[in-house]
Nucleic acid binder design. Structure first.
Length: 453
DNA sequence: ATATGGTACCTCTGCGTGTT
DNA sequence: AACACGCAGAGGTACCATAT
């Protein structure tokens, strides 16, 4: 082998190539950007065969378009391309290695990967082998060197040195350790291989490496249980095994039942929690409705009191104007709205009014306003103590003028019939509901705004 | 017929990713 | 974080196609 020390200089700092790789495996080698040339074949000045005739190939145009191979059966080789360098062509393995082989051996000895060798060769314009050829050529060169050296040793033209003897013993020791490790690795795989072999022979086999190991040792040590088909008491063994199988099945079912019970329990708990939550919600809704009802009632009462005051005022005004006159005993209704006193019973339906009049022993025929007037006149004829007693009875205040007492009683009667009450309550509720809905919408919008951040 | 470059196939290793 | 798993890249070897 020729001197290769110059490669150390060439590839030291100035020629950046990748660091030698330590382990095999997936690595990301940097891509080499080189011109693509067609594979060609020509002889150089020494008669050696090279691709591209050793011409420097800096561009894709700078080559002679010649086929390196004769017309092949598949024609594939004629069109193969290499990046940079010369195309590979058969070249004898020579122990007096040329520069390419010397570099190849040096790089491989240094630990560069096959791909790195190919890239470096391409970049330097050397022969560009296929990556998969590198190891092949490398091992062939080494064998050739060894063969040549064997012959020299035979002829006693070279000899072992003391230093080499020492290295030999070290190498022997090292290799022995490697062999031991390799042996251990393969031995450790023994029962894995046994299990695989079992599967090949018995496709239904499900014995693991561990099972094979345990059984094998049991058989060798005589501790393995006897198979039922060769046992002295097969019936007993079978019965015992069946009992174990049954017990295991029972255990399995028990566990399944426990599991199912646990799931059921959890579901029941969840259902209870859900129901409780729903009940709480319903109660809350009920409370809310109750509150709204009360508020409405309060508002209505307040309005009623205000109306009662207004009613009293109107009556007073009319009384002053009609001084000395008796209130009409029958159906005389003022046609002028200004003169007419608003009685709460006017909100009642004609049907309810007829019912009320009948109940109080008053003529219930005629127009709506006539009935309202008759009711008023009837009330007006009562004494103040009687009116107060009536107010007390219906849970209304007993203070104020007679007209206010009259109004309260009229209002109570009107509200005791469903229609006007429902009408007013609904009106008040819908107002409260609207307010609530608006509040809900604002909350909803705010929630989404916060979520979007 | 032999030597050589290249291919097919196998194994090993490292990396990325999903699961526990 | 630890582990399992699949994928892809790398090297080794037997073999094939072809040049000599």
């Amino acid at each position: 082998m020729s001197d290769f020390l110059h490669f150390y200089d060439e590839y030291d700092d100035e020629r950046p190539i990748a660091e030698p790789v330590e382990n095999r495996g997936r690595r990301k080698n940097p891509a080499v950007d080189l011109p693509v040339i067609l594979r060609t074949r020509n002889d150089d000045e020494n008669g050696e065969v090279h691709g591209n005739n050793g011409v420097e190939t800096d561009s894709a145009i700078d080559f002679t378009f010649m086929s390196v191979y004769q017309e092949g059966a598949n024609g594939k080789r004629q069109l193969m391309r290499v990046q940079g360098g010369r195309a590979a062509a058969p070249k004898a393995i020579n122990t007096q290695a040329d520069d390419d082989d010397a570099m190849l051996v040096w790089m491989k000895n240094m630990g560069y990967s096959d791909k790195q060798v190919v890239d470096a060769f391409a970049r330097d314009g050397r022969t560009v082998y296929s990556t998969t050829s590198i190891t092949g050529r490398y091992t062939r060169v080494l064998r050739a060197q060894e063969n040549e050296y064997d012959e020299l040793l035979e002829r006693e033209l070279v000899e072992w040195t003391a230093e080499d003897d020492e290295e030999l013993m070290k190498a022997y020791q090292k290799v022995n350790e490697e062999i031991y490790a390799a042996f251990k690795r393969i031995r450790d795989k023994r029962f894995r291989m046994v299990a695989t072999a079992m599967r090949k022979e018995v496709p239904t086999s499900k014995y693991s490496a561990k099972a094979c190991y345990d059984r094998y040792n049991g058989l060798v040590n005589g501790t393995a249980c006897i198979p039922v088909d060769v046992h002295d008491e097969p019936e007993r063994v079978k019965t015992e095994r069946d009992a174990r199988v049954a017990a295991a099945e029972n255990e399995r079912r028990k566990n399944l039942a426990l599991e199912a019970a646990a799931i059921k329990k959890q579901e029941a708990q969840e259902a209870t929690a859900k129901r409780l939550k729903e009940m709480r919600t319903v109660k809350a809704m009920d409370r809310k409705e109750e509150r709204l009802k009360k508020e409405t009632e309060m508002r209505l009462n307040k309005a009623a009191e205000a109306k009662a005051a207004m009613f009293a005022h109107h009556i007073k005004v009319r009384a002053a104007r009609d001084k000395g006159k008796q209130v009409a005993a029958d159906d005389e209704i003022g046609s002028d709205d200004d003169e007419r006193v608003i009685d709460p019973r006017e909100d009642m339906s004609v049907e309810d009014l007829r019912h009320l009049c009948k109940k109080k022993g008053i003529n219930n025929r005629g127009k709506k306003l006539q009935m309202v007037n008759r009711l008023y006149v009837s009330d007006e004829r009562m004494t103040i103590p009687a009116l107060k007693a009536r107010c007390r009875e219906i849970g209304r205040p007993t203070g104020g003028t007679k007209d206010m007492l009259l109004y309260r009683i009229a209002d109570h009667e009107a509200r005791s019939y469903s229609k006007p009450i429902e009408k007013r309550r609904k009106k008040a509720l819908s107002k409260a509901e609207k307010a609530q809905a608006q509040e809900d919408q604002e909350l909803h919008d705010m929630f989404h705004k916060i979520n979007a951040i």
